[in-house]
């Protein structure tokens, strides 16, 4: 059982936790290795992190940092999704430093959810998380695509937001070019 249709939704949910914990940088790494038949997703944030006690509870579906809401509810679902697909899940955290959530899947596993609308998901993060930068690194076999909003922010300055239509088009085209690059010439 899982509540999300695709892995991008899991990534967004984990990123949301980081932003709630005060992160200013989200580092999202996706590694697809066809020879090893693995898909690895790492979401690293520089938020407030968790102590050992909280960390031990966080994979428990009944745990939340707030009593009436569902913060952190997505973590056990992500863990379950990975473990159901011949993979593994690990979350490490350090108070004051941040949290690293890492899920590995058997790439070809029949139950592995698709990555889904990764570009749309990244746009939601880049525009929607105000004041938070996103470093997106995606590797497929030997090919790598990187998008770092700190570089983009440095050019745009404070007066042009990421939601500007021309900036949105630039981001969309960049992410599309990235997908083409990652697919490689043989596809």
């Amino acid at each position: 059982m899982t509540i999300f249709r695709d892995l991008s939704q899991h990534i967004l949910d984990i990123a949301e936790n980081g932003v709630k914990a005060g992160a200013t940088l989200l580092h999202i790494t996706i590694e697809e290795n066809f020879a090893a038949d693995t898909l690895r997703i790492v979401v690293q944030d520089n938020g407030s992190g968790m102590n050992a006690e909280t960390l031990a509870k966080v994979e428990d579906p009944w745990f939340t940092t707030r009593t009436t809401r569902n913060v952190g509810l997505g973590i056990p679902f992500f863990k379950q999704a990975a473990e159901m697909c011949g993979g593994s899940f690990r979350i490490t955290s350090e108070p004051g430093v941040g949290t690293i959530t890492e899920a590995t899947f058997q790439h070809s596993h029949i139950d592995r959810p698709p990555l889904g609308d990764l570009a749309g998901t990244l746009l939601c993060m880049i525009v929607g998380f105000v004041g938070v930068d996103v470093l997106y690194e995606h590797r497929v076999d030997g090919r790598t695509f990187t998008l770092d909003t700190r570089e983009i922010r440095a050019v745009l300055g404070d007066d042009v937001p990421f939601s500007d239509p021309d900036v949105l088009a630039f981001l969309n085209e960049s992410l599309h070019d990235g997908q083409v690059l990652l697919q490689g010439e043989t596809n």
């Binding site: 939704q9 949301e16 913060v71 997505g74 998901t121 746009l123 939601c124 929607g128 939601s163 239509p165």
Partner: peptide, 23 residues
Amino acid sequence: MGTTGIAAGARDTMAAILKELEK
């Protein structure tokens, strides 16, 4: 965009909003 919002499709909703702004 909490967990339940994402599960209900909030990511696609927001992507559609951004698409409209761009278009």
